[in-house]
């Protein structure tokens, strides 16, 4: 127990980061589950972070309230952007959402209320580890149960074949819109938790580099799997610490791992696991016959 307390004291910052990154990864996995490559989650996280931080700085409201308002603001912006953007497919959706992310960055850089390029500082340090992991647990439960609902089936069907899904009464536009909005809200929660964990936020925190990080969590974990997304986030968040001894070469290890996963396990870590399970299931009847 004492060892555990000591470990936490030493690594609490990293443990918090893992949780927040996992929430970001889950937000992206929602749109990926519907087969949509939307890359605005970092931007939505940023919007929520600014809204929530400004509220806690000016009003002193508690984290729960500011995070809720921040996440809903991100969802609202997501709905506005989502209306036109979710009608786009594949790479066009990716480009449009990256474009939106850049616009958000420019706005944040130039508004006086967001503190311009210097960002906001002295944000109250309200985020606690247990709150991060409570949110993560609730989201994991949500994603687990979602799979068995009609909405969950509709999302999976759209990922597989949008056109065929429509001929079974599933409205692709509607499903894609709501996954996009949901994704923005979850990213917003992560953004606000991040802001209240770091004292300080700036536009650069929500740029394309962060978006790529989130995408890497999901790709390494398994693009369409919420479990994979969380595992990927944990792995990639720990990695820089684990290979700290490599100093400036750390990014090379990151890139190398991504490359290896894409080549040898295109379905990610979750894909390796389920492929193994399926192989076993197929093998069973053979054994029976023998």
């Amino acid at each position: 127990m004492a060892a555990l307390v000591h470990f936490y004291a030493l690594h609490s910052k990293l443990i918090d980061q893992i949780g927040i990154n996992a929430i970001f990864a889950l937000s992206l996995s929602l749109t990926l589950q519907a087969g949509q490559l939307a890359l605005a989650n970092a931007a939505f996280g940023g919007i929520a972070a600014y809204v929530a931080s400004l509220l806690s700085l000016s009003r002193g409201w508690p984290l729960e309230v500011t995070t809720l308002i921040g996440a809903l603001s991100a969802g609202f912006v997501g709905a506005l952007i989502g209306l036109p953007v979710t009608r786009l497919r594949g790479v066009f959706l990716a480009i449009a959402t990256i474009g939106f992310g850049e616009i958000a960055l420019i706005v944040e850089n130039n508004l006086s209320v967001t503190g311009g390029a210097e960002g906001l500082s002295q944000i109250p340090n309200q985020t606690t580890t247990w709150e991060i992991y409570l949110v993560l647990a609730v989201l994991a439960f949500f994603f687990w149960r979602l799979r068995s609902t009609r909405a969950g089936w509709a999302i999976a069907a759209i990922r597989e074949d949008e056109f065929a899904a429509a001929s079974f009464g599933i409205d692709p536009t509607r499903v894609k819109f709501w996954t996009f909005v949901g994704s923005a809200v979850i990213a917003g929660i992560a953004g606000s938790l991040y802001a209240h964990e770091n004292f300080f936020i700036a536009p650069g925190d929500w740029g394309f580099a962060r978006m790529v990080d989130i995408l890497v969590y999901c790709v390494i974990g398994g693009a369409a799997s919420p479990w994979g997304a969380m595992i990927g986030a944990a792995l990639i968040s720990v990695l820089p610490e684990a290979v700290r001894f490599l100093h400036d070469y750390r990014d090379i290890v990151d890139g190398l791992i991504l490359l290896l996963v894409v080549i040898f396990a295109p379905q990610g870590i979750a894909g390796l696991w389920s492929r193994d399970l399926r192989a076993r299931r197929v093998a069973e009847p053979v054994e029976e016959r023998a």
Partner: peptide, 13 residues
């Protein structure tokens, strides 16, 4: 068909 879904899952969709 929904290619990476099982026969059962296709029918359920």
């Amino acid at each position: 068909l929904f290619p990476r879904m099982t026969a059962m899952q296709n029918v359920i969709v």
